[in-house]
């Protein structure tokens, strides 16, 4: 039973990460469309933010993996 709960937790973390990634990607594309000359800076910031968010999701997944 605990295994199933851990899997559920990992799934929830991925949902959160998915929403976050969608927000970051969507807004970044919007920003690039508005200001194409700043595309480089926006892309860098986007990848950095995505990495931070991914880190949070990965901690959740690994906790789910280890706590059986």
């Amino acid at each position: 039973m605990t295994g199933t709960l851990a899997a559920l937790g990992a799934g929830l973390a991925v949902i959160g990460a998915g929403i976050g990634l969608g927000q970051i990607g969507g807004k970044a594309v919007e920003a690039i469309a508005r200001q194409p000359e700043a595309a480089g800076d926006i892309r860098g910031a986007m990848i950095l933010m995505a990495a931070f968010m991914e880190g949070a999701a990965l901690i959740a997944i690994l906790l789910a993996f280890f706590i059986k």
Binding site: A51, F52, E54, G55, A56, L58, I59, I61, L62
Partner: peptide
Amino acid sequence: LTLMLRLAGN
């Protein structure tokens, strides 16, 4: 910690 987990996890 996140540096470590991110790379290994991915």
